[in-house]
Simulated assay, not measured.
Amino acid sequence: MPRLRLLVLGVAASAVLAGTPVAATGAPLAPVPLPLSEEAWPQSAAAPGDQLTVTVAKSGVAGSDGTYRLTCRPVGGTHQRARAACDRLAELAGGSRDPFAPVSRNAACTMQYGGDATARVHGTWRGRSVDASFNKKNGCEISRWRALEPVLPGNGA
């Protein structure tokens, strides 16, 4: 009996080191398929979808200035390009960078000026509070704005 216990523990330890889950019997467990799309995950009252308010001024894009509500998971609100904006936010969620983070104080930014456009995004994204301001006053800020298009209006608004 002790030999069988050692064998089971050895198989379990090997599986853990290899990242393979095992049952109490020592047999590997079959992987459980997970849903790939975010729509497949059930929404609950404890985990509401994204809810953002986007305020844009002096964008230079016809019909884009104003305040809009954007909801994702499910898509809705008054944002003119809600589906595309939610798709972009879903894409950004898979990255390691926070799209709402300010430009680092240590960033070396070009002295390129992109205009007087300003935007503020506040609300909830991926379960956390967001309150971010955007502008186009230098190359870093322009890149940051463009990374969030079409949540923020762009050339193809």
Rank of each mutant, 00 (worst) to 15 (best):
G49T: 07
A18P: 11
V151Y: 09
A101I: 06
D131T: 05
T25N: 08
S64T: 07
S44A: 03
G76S: 03
K136F: 06
T53M: 12
P2M: 08
A82T: 06
P31L: 01
E91T: 14
G60S: 00
G10S: 13
V130N: 08
V56D: 02
V32A: 09
S37P: 03
T20E: 12
A82L: 04
K58A: 15
G139T: 03
L70A: 08
H122F: 11
E38H: 13
T67A: 09
R126Q: 15
D50I: 04
L17V: 03
W41N: 11
P74V: 06
A27S: 13
V130Y: 04
E141D: 15
G10T: 07
H122M: 10
A132G: 12
V103Y: 07
T78N: 05
G63K: 09
P31N: 03
P150N: 12
E91N: 05
W41E: 10
G19H: 09
Q80F: 13
S14V: 11
A23K: 08
T25M: 03
N155I: 13
V103D: 11
A24Q: 13
E141M: 06
A40M: 10
E39M: 01
H79I: 02
S37L: 06
T118W: 01
C140M: 12
Y68C: 01
G95Y: 07
N155E: 15
L7N: 03
V103T: 14
P35H: 04
A101T: 11
E141G: 05
L4S: 15
H79F: 07
G77K: 01
S14R: 12
A12K: 15
G114I: 03
T78I: 10
F100S: 08
P74K: 03
S104H: 11
V151P: 13
A82Y: 00
N155S: 14
S59R: 02
G10N: 07
